[in-house]
């Protein structure tokens, strides 16, 4: 709703101001297509999700009355706790691993470039290629790697080295880490690119000053590099957290949420509720839960952002 008001304000503002300046452009016509698309495809659907959450609607029928019972029933479903825990483990470990690995690769690549080492471009490009692979294809590729048949790309290496095979996808205690591994493979390049750009933007004078003061490599990292990267790391964490929370194509084609519910994250659960069980209202409540989690996390991260860069 606030968006509609804002658009009316934006349309009026130039008209009021026109008497003052001789050339005050009208903003509204330039923004109109964007406003229409966002309003039609985001604002109205989100509004509708809230409406549906207070109804008892299925994909096929809707009795039109409003009730709180769907909300209560959904939030007290016995499996929801398990789903949220799975989502938390998957998102948390993916985000931490992507951030750390992305930063490590960026640091090594930047160091390698300054030392003229061979292969920095190859490493960077390889990671980026994994990032371009569509989610569904990524899931299928990793399913082949994790396969326990002779053509499984990981177990056949283990066998070659004489190690016992691992039940990557069928052991409920291991499967989560397999899914995280495949997600880290596909997602790390984004963090790497952001960290690389942020590293390149650090003023070299800071390192010269640190060198004059006799700082060791570790001190340079802790006292110069990391503080300088702080806001880039936070922005990156916000972006990859949201991406990971919304990930579901890579999981649906890798495990389908199984075995049992071991890898059924909230987005996949919502999908199943709406499009397999046709329960629209419950799906709407779960959608709101997803929105609330993204928003809450974004706010938590934003608190840690330095004041001047908010």
């Amino acid at each position: 709703m606030s968006m509609l008001n804002a658009s009316a304000g934006a349309a009026q503002a130039p008209r009021l101001a026109r008497s003052g300046a001789n050339e005050k452009p009208r903003v509204a016509p330039w923004l109109l297509p964007l406003i229409l698309v966002l309003g039609l495809f985001y604002l109205y659907p989100v509004f509708d999700v809230f409406r549906l959450a207070f109804m008892r609607a299925t994909l096929l029928a809707n009795d039109g009355s409003y009730t709180l019972s769907t909300l209560i029933q959904t939030l007290t479903r016995p499996e929801l706790g398990q789903i949220l825990w799975v989502t938390f483990v998957f998102t948390g470990s993916s985000v931490v691993a992507q951030q750390l690995l992305g930063l490590a690769i960026a640091l090594v690549v930047v160091r390698g470039e300054s030392r003229g080492l061979f292969g920095t471009t190859i490493v960077r490009t390889t990671a980026l290629i994994a990032w371009v692979v569509p989610g569904i294809a990524g899931g299928i590729i990793w399913k082949m790697l994790f396969n326990e048949a002779p053509f499984g790309g990981l177990n056949s290496i283990l066998r070659l080295m004489g190690a016992p095979p691992v039940q990557w996808l069928s052991d409920p205690h291991i499967v989560m880490w397999s899914v995280v591994l495949s997600n880290v493979w596909r997602g790390t390049a984004f963090s790497m690119v952001v960290m690389y750009a942020a590293l390149k933007a650090i003023d070299p004078v800071l390192y010269e000053a640190a060198a004059v003061d006799g700082a060791t490599a570790r001190q340079r990292l802790v006292y110069v590099t990391l503080p300088q990267l702080r806001s880039a790391i936070l922005v990156n964490m916000i972006l990859i957290t949201i991406q990971t929370l919304n990930t579901f194509d890579a999981i649906i084609s890798l495990t389908g949420g199984g075995p049992g519910r071991a890898t059924e994250v909230l987005s996949l659960y919502t999908f199943n509720v709406v499009f397999r069980n046709y329960d629209l209202s419950v799906g709407a409540v779960l959608s709101i839960l997803m929105l609330a989690i993204s928003l809450g996390l974004a706010l938590v991260y934003a608190v840690f952002l330095p004041k001047d860069e908010k």
């Binding site: 495809f41 989100v46 549906l52 987005s267 709407a284 959608s287 997803m290 929105l291 993204s294």
Partner: peptide
Amino acid sequence: SVQMISPLVIMVPL
């Protein structure tokens, strides 16, 4: 911030 909204959320009503 519109990007924070999962495609899944808008696909339900759409």
